[in-house]
Each structure stands twice: as structure tokens, then as C-alpha cells.
Design a binder for these strands. Sequence first.
DNA 1: TCACATACTTACACTAAGTGCAAGTTTGCA
DNA 2: TGCAAACTTGCACTTAGTGTAAGTATGTGA
Lengths: 239, 239
Amino acid sequence: MTETSSQEATAESPPEQSTPSRRELNKAATRSSIASAALDLLRSNGSGNFTVEDIAASAGVSRRTFFNYFPSLEAALASVADGFMDHALEQFRLRPEEESILESAQAALMALADPMSVAPMAELFSLTQDNRQLARSELEAWEHCTEQIIDAARSRLGTGISELYLHALAGSVISCGKAAMTVWFTEHGPDLSPKSLAALRQHLIDAMGLLGAGFAPPSHTSSQTAAASPSVPTTKDRF
Amino acid sequence: MTETSSQEATAESPPEQSTPSRRELNKAATRSSIASAALDLLRSNGSGNFTVEDIAASAGVSRRTFFNYFPSLEAALASVADGFMDHALEQFRLRPEEESILESAQAALMALADPMSVAPMAELFSLTQDNRQLARSELEAWEHCTEQIIDAARSRLGTGISELYLHALAGSVISCGKAAMTVWFTEHGPDLSPKSLAALRQHLIDAMGLLGAGFAPPSHTSSQTAAASPSVPTTKDRF
DNA sequence: TCACATACTTACACTAAGTGCAAGTTTGCA
DNA sequence: TGCAAACTTGCACTTAGTGTAAGTATGTGA
């Protein structure tokens, strides 16, 4: 997402990085106040039980202004997920060039398993599960993230790399991240205790391990031991 | 998708398989006439340039009836993709029990690379690319397919299998299928010649090969040779 | 073949999403 | 201070999507 949400009001000159001018600050404030109003309403009313008008009123802006910032109600809520994933992408891009994509991805995902990052995402996850529209937006967020990874990986591996490789790898990495989050959430719900987060972290490691090992052994034990040695993949009985 | 689209009008008694009664036939006919009217309008007007009312009129039903069959304009178009993916899932479920999931998946995907199956999907792909809403529906279709694979794989591997394994594997398989289709489409557009379809088939094989090999070697050659030996995965430089 | 129940279609009315436009208000800058 | 550009807002309009009640087709049992 990230820039997807910038609308009419913001369409042209994103003044790069310097001078957070008054206008910039105002816009950022409005934007985040709309987003958090939306999240509050989601919390209090449940998904599907409030309108854009409600959000706008609660954020102290007009309905029209809401649509100047977000193209839809779902987009306003998805901005939470966007922040989460942008954070992950940032981590990914900071990894050393010579590291393998899988390792970088694992490291980036790891950075997400701290309470500060994962808390809003987990909450959104829990509040979102029963709503088609919101689930769609989440899919879109993952998809956007995949595209970003493809770009990042391409610029790291050089343009000679096969596009199929890039797409398949990025898609699989994201799928594994998604799988880890999904499984973690169905097991722990919105529990953000250190123990629960450790489980999430382990799931992320395991999932990436499975991917790196070509999903070799269909382990029948619990997930904890599913991918015992991600860095020494067993290469038998594959396929 | 599949049953997702059945709406109010169809909510209760799906008479399993026997006796395609008059009512069943009528409903099926109406449904497909709506779907093809939607596709026709997509072809002639381009995405975003027609309304549900147009579709209903063109299919000879009321607007309300349209919504009795599909929950949205996108859903009507997505029924094409649904058919495609249902076909793939059917192939998957027909594979022998003892075969590995990856092999079954590859075989199932392979069945899609014939003109009859892929033609409508490819057309939808090409007509869809520029439209957010439609792209979303497609994501949803892939997602639904992933869930079906999870179910199928679970019932094959037994319930003792780790949920993380199932989710990560199914997601990755679908990602690879998606990657193959995407890359193929950007290279060949809506070209359905035998040569083009052979390329699609090769992409599917390569992508699954990469997955089975844990995305080991970042090959710098073209996709054709990217995963030379999917059944004899090279296991070096991984991670 | 008639009647009756049930399934399906349709018209109508209503709420809410999303957008273009023009007039107001705020901010940046000379 | 004053002007231009950016931002907000109200208004009007089209379209999506849904509930409801009345109409039409279909299956069934006598």
C-alpha cells in the first residue's frame, strides 16, 4: 500500500524527506486521526456495523475529506497493515547485499515479532476475520508486499535474474509469512504475551526453514519441531 | 469460490447430483447467461465502463435478479476464474494418495495448460489487469484455492500433520502457480498458441522445481533453464 | 388436470459508497 | 500584507447492495 492511499488531496508533490512543513504535518495528523477513528469504531462496533460517515464524524472531518485520504473504508483500516508491512520491507532492504534472499526475508520477518509492531496487526487480524471486504484488503496488502519484495530482490540480484524465480520466490516467502501469522493467530488469538510472540517467531523460522528445505519431510509432530534444521536442510524424499 | 456465489435464491437444497430438474437447469442457464453477459461487456466496453444494470439488461434479467446470483459485479466475472481453479482442484484430488503434494500440485497445474481451460482465464487476466476491484477478486480466487488445497492435503496427509506445514506449503504452491501465470502473461499476453502454452507449461514446471529445490540457485539465465532438474534438486548454496 | 406449496423473479424503496464541482478556508511565500 | 496554491467542505449525482412484498413459474399429490 503505502502510496496507494494518497488521494486527490495529495496527488502531486511529495516533498521527499526534508522540511516537514506545516501542511505535511497537518495532513499526516488528519490521516492518522481518520485511521485511528476507523480502528476505534471497528473495536467498539465490530466490522460492518459502522459507516464512512461515522468515521469522518468521529475524526472530526467531513465525509468528503475522508475520501480525499482513503479510497474506501477498508483502505483506512488497511493502513494499519500497511504500516506493519512497510516496516518489514524496510528491514528487508537494510539487509546486506550478499545475504541470500531467504535469509534476508527471515531476518525481516523476525523484526515483526516484537510487540510494538505486531500488536496493531494482530488486533486488526482478530477484528477482521469475519468480514469479506476487510479480508480482501488484507490480501491486497500482502500482494503489495510481494511486489515490493520482487523489486527489492531484483535490484539486489541484478536484472539478469529470471522473473519467474523472483515472482515464485517472493510469493512463496510472503505465503510463508502469511501462513505463520495465520497459524499463530488461530492458536493464540490476540494474545501478545512474550510466550505467544515467541511462538510466532518460531513459526516464522519454521516456515522459512520449510521453504528453504523444499518442504521435504511431512513431519507428523507439532510445529515446534517441524523444521528442525533450517540451515542444514535434509534433501531426501523430496517430490 | 464455487459455492461462494450461490446466493439467496439458491441458499438451501443443492440436490446433490441426480435429477437436473427443470429448476436447476433454469438457474444454471440464468447464471451462466449473466456471467457471459458480464464477460461480453468487459470485452466490448473495457473494465469499469459498465454497470450491474447493464449486465442485467444484457442478460435479460432484472437488476435484483443479478444480485440474487452474484454478490457483486466482480463476482460475476470471477466465476470464470473459479471454474478454472475448480478444474485444477479436481485434478489435484484425483492424484494418487501416495504421491507427494508437490508432485500432485504440479500435475494438477499441468492440466491447466491446455487451451480449453486456460483460454477464458487468460482472457480474464488480460482484461482484468488494469482494474483494482477485479484484481482483488482474482486474489480472492487464489486464496480460496489455497484453502481448498490445505483441506485436500490435510485429508491426504492425515490430521497429525502440522498446520504450519500445510499452510506454508499450500500457499507456496499457489504462489508458484500464480507466478508462472503472471510471468507467462507478461511475456506472451493473451497468446494461446501451442508455443505459448508450452512456455506456460514450462514455467509451471520450473516454478514447482524451484520450490522443491528450496529456491537454491539464483540462476542468471532465462527461465527456460532456471530449474533444470526439478526431480534431482541441487542442494547447495541454500540459505 | 387441478390445486397448492415452494422456488424464483421482479418492482420499489431505501441506505451507503464513491466522485465531480465550485465555493470557502488555510498555508506558503514574496 | 497580499496573492497563489493546497486543502476542506457542502451539494448533487450515479451506482452498489439489500429488504420486502407481490407476482410468475415449477413440482407434487390427489
